[in-house]
């Protein structure tokens, strides 16, 4: 069964139709890429998947269960983690604190006001393990706003991973990263793939075609093409483009 599924999603803001009809399913362990020109509705689609926008028609399902219209915190608690196109970290928190607050066990104790969050060995060791995974083990104590850009991007992924999600939704994870940063991110995602499902909006074709199992091309609020990178590459026009030259 698909981990995350969207059926015939239709979204309009007033007179503007943003999503005409999108259907989509992520299989366990799959990396599903979403690409498309600006204004195609990719981020809105993400907002529908993560409960920020309620679709006018259509259904979102997590492991077969209808979650359409649930608030984002309920969807997050069901194992859908997301990063944002414009980075949103808790800037005043250290890297460690950012990750700790994302842990499900921290969330389970969210209303606990009687014990200290600082110095809790359980939270700290779990958070340090996640930081180590994205290569930030040495920077646990640095306040997020003082981290360099590439590390902030990595921390965003650490925060998402800390939620131990079933599906990781990344909105343009490479944006603003140089080639080193992209390479580092690609290695990280390749390692995560298979362990959990990943949905990525991405403009960097090289990045996406190298990593994704399947890609959905979104335009005019619809999926205009879908397939494995190899299938999509077979198209004669794609062969003629920069994409065809990549290989």
């Amino acid at each position: 069964m698909a981990v995350l599924e969207a059926c015939d999603i239709h979204v309009r803001f007033g007179d503007r139709v943003v999503l005409e009809e999108i259907s989509f399913a992520v299989e366990p362990g799959e990396m599903h890429g979403i690409m498309g020109p600006n204004g195609a509705g990719k981020t809105t689609f993400f907002n529908v998947l993560t409960g920020r926008v309620k679709p006018s028609r259509g259904e979102v399902r997590i492991e077969g269960e209808d979650v359409t219209g649930l608030p984002s915190h309920r969807i997050a608690a069901r194992g859908i983690a997301r990063s944002f196109q414009i980075m949103t970290l808790f800037d005043e928190f250290t890297a460690l604190e950012n990750v700790e607050v994302a842990l499900p066990e921290f969330r389970a104790r969210g209303f606990d006001g009687r014990r200290a969050a600082v110095g809790d060995r359980g939270f700290e060791s779990a958070a340090r393990a996640v930081l180590a995974e994205v290569g930030l083990a040495e920077k646990a104590g640095i306040v997020a706003k003082d981290l360099p850009y590439g590390d902030r991007r990595a921390l965003e992924i650490a925060v998402a991973l800390a939620q131990r999600p079933r599906v990781l939704c990344l909105d343009e994870p490479t944006s603003g990263l140089g080639s080193d940063g992209r390479a580092r991110l690609a290695i990280l995602i390749a390692r995560l793939k298979g362990r959990l499902s990943i949905v990525t909006i991405e403009h960097d074709m090289e990045f996406l075609f190298g990593l994704a199992d399947r890609i959905s091309v979104v335009h005019w609020g619809q999926v205009i093409a879908r397939g494995t990178p190899a299938e999509l590459r077979q198209n004669a026009w794609v062969q003629r483009s920069n994409l065809g030259r990549l290989q």
């Binding site: 020109p37 335009h219 619809q222 205009i224 093409a225 198209n235 794609v238 483009s241 920069n242 994409l243």
Partner: peptide, 11 residues
């Protein structure tokens, strides 16, 4: 350049 033409025509 971006190869979208092919996807659009297929659509």
């Amino acid at each position: 350049q971006d190869g979208y033409i092919g996807f659009m025509l297929d659509f």
